[in-house]
Every structure is written in C-alpha cells, then in structure tokens.
Amino acid sequence: MSAPTARRGAGHASCHHGEILQGVFLDAAGRRCAGLVTLPMTGMGSRAEFTRRPGTPPEQLTVLPVDRTKAARAAALTVEECAPLRREPPCGGELRITGDIPVGLGMGSSTSDVIAVVRAVADSYGVRLAPGTVARLAVRAELACDPLMLDARPVLFAQREGRVLEALGPCLPPLVVVGCALGGGAPVDTLALPARTYDESDVRAFERLRALLRRAVATGDAALLGQVASASARRGQQLLRHPEFDTLAGIGRRLGALGVQIAHSGAVAGLLLDPAAPGLRHRVRGCVRALESNGIAATRVFTTFTTFPPVPPVPPVPSIPTVPTTKEFPSGPAHRGGHRPARPDTPRRPARLPAL
C-alpha cells in the first residue's frame, strides 16, 4: 500500500451574540452544573485550513497566527482522534486560521476558532465528526466551549462539560435583534470578578427560567423568550454590573422591545423586537437612535430566522472602537475569562461589528 500523501482540509464555524439564559441547572441525574443558551448569529465566523504532513512527528505543527494556542491544542487533539480511524499514525502539519468575529465581546470567538480547526483537521482525513465528539474535543482544548457545533439549534448546554442538558426545540421564535456594545466595547475580564456561589433558591430560579424558555421555544412565544432573556440578563448584572444596563433596559421598555439580552462573559448586548409587531422600521430606527443618544454603541441588526420577510433598512451606525488587547488566559474561558488578544499579525479584522 502506498504511503499516505499530504491532504488539505477546511472548516468553518459561526459565532453567537451572547446568551439568552445562563446559570446553574440540574441535569437528568439531579446534579448541579453550569449551563447556557446562546443567541445564534450568522454572517461572521472563523475559517481554518489544515494541511497534514504524513510521516512528520505530531508535535511538528505550525499555526498562523502563532498566538492561537487553544486552536493549536484542538488541532493536535483532533489528529489523535482521526488518525486511528484511517489506520495512520498521528502526524504534524500546517494550520491557518482567519475570521471576522470581534474579539473580547463575548461572542464565542475562541470557540469558533477551535470548532473550525476541529472540522478542518477532520476534513483533511475525510472524516465527519459527530457534534458530541466536536464538543468533547473543544472542551479539552479550552476547558469550556459554546454550543456552536450544533449549528444554531437552541439547547441548554453545559459549557464546561461539552454536553447538551436539554434540546429546547428546532428553532427559536422569530426575533429582530438590535445589537449594541456596553462599556464602549471594552472586554470584560470575568476572571477579575469575584466567584459567585449559588444556593438552592438560585437553582430554583434558574430552573423556572428554563421551564419558561422551554415553553417559549415550543410555542414560538417571542414575548416569553424576551422575559426570560431580560431576567437572566438582570441576574447577570449582579456580577457584571454594566453601568449602562438600566439605560438599555429603559430604552427597551420605552420603545416596546420584548426584552434585552447580554453576553455573560463580554460587553455585547441586544434589544429583542417582535418582527410581527406594527411599525417595525420605526421601532428599529428608534432603538438605534436612542442607543446612540445615550452613549451606547449600536452595532448590528439581525434576526433569528431566514424565511420571514427581511428586516427593513435602517441608517448606518458607527463601528465599535477597537477592543483593547487582552490576554488569552491559560485556564480557558469557562465563561469567566477574556478571549485571545488581537495582534498585528492576526488576520482578523479589529474588534468591531459591521455597520447595519
């Protein structure tokens, strides 16, 4: 049999726009575990290309940009996973990562990198890994991950364990989201925040929100989802303490938003609107103007659906200022830390969201 030859694989992963719900929940065995439900967002993502070099030692792995240490770990772990499936010894190779996800806003940029890399390495072996395997490798690479490998399906996900606690349904209710960035887009270093402990009353409260969200997804009730997101965001403020949060919530109430959502490990946030409500164009414009007039950077309008009539155009909004450089914490994000720094050699746009 001839020796295996070099083969290139490619992978892609999208991002999210923070969380709809995050807290501590009970699994099927009644055990407490951290969990979250993310708000999916398409249009931005990470892309990876991996060229494997059979016959080279597995530690001979080059990565561009060189600071993507979590992605490099993911590549090595995926080689170990896939090589035996092809009855080949693990080998080295070249990995290149590009993308346009803003860094440090809590949009899952590091997880997107990791999942894109896992998919690229698997593709180079001609292997398609199951989402559960991708999640397991992602957690091993960065200690916690977002459920981006599930491609926007709403699930309650145990981010530190890489497993689904509950599949909530096929899709979220239709929503229009007016995105913004609190604190001028500066990253939130949640490692610097005091660790929060949860008692039985907290767990009961999170379980009530979980039940309401389950019902909202099952019935397509966007208003109920907005209530859950707002309650979760307000609970998150007990730790994050964004000074503009009350202003954001007030804008939402005044302009008829269904609720607000935030990233529990970053600065991104959003006003949730009902696309079926009358005057959507006026409502979106009003939200953008109110945010800007209160010093909150409006960033992007997007939807949770693809088959509904398109969102009406609104005036362009300024981009978010570049996010200051942050350290990639060796402990992994675990939704308590920042993302990797944006460096001059990084083929990723500065940390800013596209205008509308």
Rank of each mutant, 00 (worst) to 15 (best):
T5N: 04
G9E: 02
A10R: 13
G11K: 01
L26P: 03
D27Q: 05
G30I: 08
T38G: 05
L39G: 07
P40Q: 09
G45F: 07
G45I: 10
R47M: 08
A48M: 01
E49T: 15
R52T: 06
R52D: 08
G55C: 09
V63W: 00
L64G: 10
P65V: 07
D67P: 01
R68V: 00
K70Q: 09
A72Y: 00
T78A: 06
E80G: 11
R86I: 03
R87D: 12
P90Y: 10
G93N: 05
I97M: 03
G99D: 05
P102V: 13
G104N: 10
L105Q: 15
M107G: 01
S109D: 02
I115K: 00
S124R: 04
P131W: 07
G132I: 00
V134G: 04
R136F: 01
R140W: 01
M149R: 03
D151N: 07
L156I: 10
F157R: 01
A158E: 08
R160M: 10
G162N: 03
L172I: 08
P173I: 06
V178P: 04
G185I: 05
G185N: 02
P187H: 12
A192F: 01
P194L: 12
A195W: 10
V203N: 07
R204V: 12
E207V: 06
R208K: 10
R208G: 05
L213D: 07
V217H: 06
T219P: 00
A222N: 08
L224Q: 13
G226N: 08
G226A: 09
A233H: 04
H242N: 10
H242Y: 15
P243G: 09
D246A: 15
R253D: 13
V260Y: 09
S265M: 03
A269C: 11
G270V: 04
G270R: 02
L271M: 05
L273T: 10
A277I: 01
P278H: 04
L280P: 09
E292Y: 03
N294D: 10
I296S: 03
R300M: 12
F302S: 01
V311W: 05
P318T: 09
T326Y: 00
F329H: 15
P330K: 08
G338S: 14
T346C: 15
P347H: 07
P347K: 07
R348S: 12
L356I: 07
